[in-house]
């Protein structure tokens, strides 16, 4: 498959060219190698999953993509250009939004305010204008407020708009976090274990939202998950990691029949 060519998924969606590429990424913490020479790409419009057993380095990988970790070796290519060393907020401003495994929301703020922070990267009225709440700052606030309301409607959290996030149950917090990331209208949406700790019903809801987001906004999604069933249903292509190495990469069906993957998940007799 060439970089610029796309492919057609099993359910008939057209996937575009390479949006982000990770080349030979290695990440070491002192003597521990969390990621060992991994390369893969994420294509425009696809749902890409990274799976693997606990401690395989999935979250580290996501942190490299979102700029929270700087890889020891290797490079990140985004929209055809090599990305220089960047701080997380700079990566966010380039259109990479994320959620966290252990929800990271602004607990003291309302759902609406939390989702509004997702628009920060799109607001640039001057500080003076903001201080006196006039002119561009006010127009900008109104305009962004509309976009946020659309996201809130889409994720069906209208009824808790004014509730402080600290009071919400776990499942809803996860959804608010997704809303905040989505409000940024990201080019790539990174989801770190979006279904962790959820019951079956909540998982089904979340899966539906992920598919709808991809379908409705065409958002490229890269997610980490260790519930195999969910991943196989959701994603177009899957990277499998084990002990920091990549042991499989391909469509869910290819990955499922890959001997290394089966060994990693089920264990092998020695």
């Amino acid at each position: 498959m060439k970089d610029t060519e796309g492919y057609v998924t099993a359910d008939g969606r057209q996937i575009g060219g390479v949006l982000m590429e990770l080349r030979n990424i290695t990440l070491k913490f002192g003597g521990v190698t969390a990621i060992n020479d991994i390369s893969f790409d994420i294509r425009e419009g696809e749902i890409r999953a990274i799976i693997g057993p606990n401690g395989a380095g999935k979250s580290s990988m996501l942190n490299v993509i979102s700029g929270f970790y700087t890889p020891t070796e290797g490079s990140v290519w985004y929209k055809g250009e090599q990305r220089p060393k960047m701080k997380p907020y700079e990566v966010a401003r380039m259109g990479v939004a994320r959620t966290f495994q252990n929800i990271a929301l602004f607990e003291g703020m309302t759902v609406l305010d939390n989702v509004m922070t997702g628009r920060l990267t799109h607001m640039n009225a001057g500080i003076l204008s903001q201080a006196i709440w006039w002119g561009s700052a006010r127009d900008e606030e109104m305009e962004n407020r509309e976009k946020v309301e659309r996201v809130i409607d889409f994720l069906e959290i209208q009824n808790i708009r004014k509730t402080p996030v600290g009071r919400l149950p776990y499942g809803l917090k996860k959804r608010v976090e997704l809303a905040r990331a989505l409000a940024a209208e990201p080019s790539i949406l990174l989801l770190d274990e979006p279904m962790a700790g959820m019951n079956v019903e909540e998982k089904e809801d979340m899966s539906r939202f992920i598919l709808d987001v991809n379908d409705e906004f065409g958002t490229t999604i890269c997610l980490i998950e260790h519930d195999m069933g969910v991943v196989m249903d959701l994603s177009d292509r899957v990277v499998v990691m084990d002990y920091g190495r990549k042991i499989g990469d391909g469509s869910p069906d290819e990955v499922r029949s890959n001997q290394d993957v089966i060994d990693a998940y089920l264990g092998v007799p020695h």
Partner: peptide, 27 residues
């Protein structure tokens, strides 16, 4: 300022959670 502007919201956000603040592009 704290309640109705982008910067104000960023200030409040930063107080709540640094990581999350970074992830939405707050410096």
């Amino acid at each position: 300022f704290l309640n109705y502007t982008r910067m104000g919201r960023a200030i409040r956000a930063l107080g709540d959670d640094h990581q999350a603040a970074l992830s939405v592009g707050i410096s």
